[in-house]
Amino acid sequence: MACIKVDYDKCTGLGICESLAPEFFEVSDDGNLTLLEEEAGPDALDDVREAVAGCPTEALSLKE
């Protein structure tokens, strides 16, 4: 299992993570990011890695 961390000081709620891995990330109507699952199993890891790498504000990290 890999653990997802969000740096809320850096997150601007763009939601690019949500578009890549919607089971894990959701930007709610108030513009704040909610982490739906904190741990990613092997099946979802590729999507989550892509979401972490794709964050323009470098607000996401993954501890594997």
Binding site: E18, V27, D29
Partner: peptide
């Protein structure tokens, strides 16, 4: 910046 941007950013989320 963070506070002002957030006033409109919620209209640009994937769901919206």
């Amino acid at each position: 910046h963070t506070k002002l941007r957030k006033l409109v950013s919620s209209a640009f989320t994937p769901k919206r």
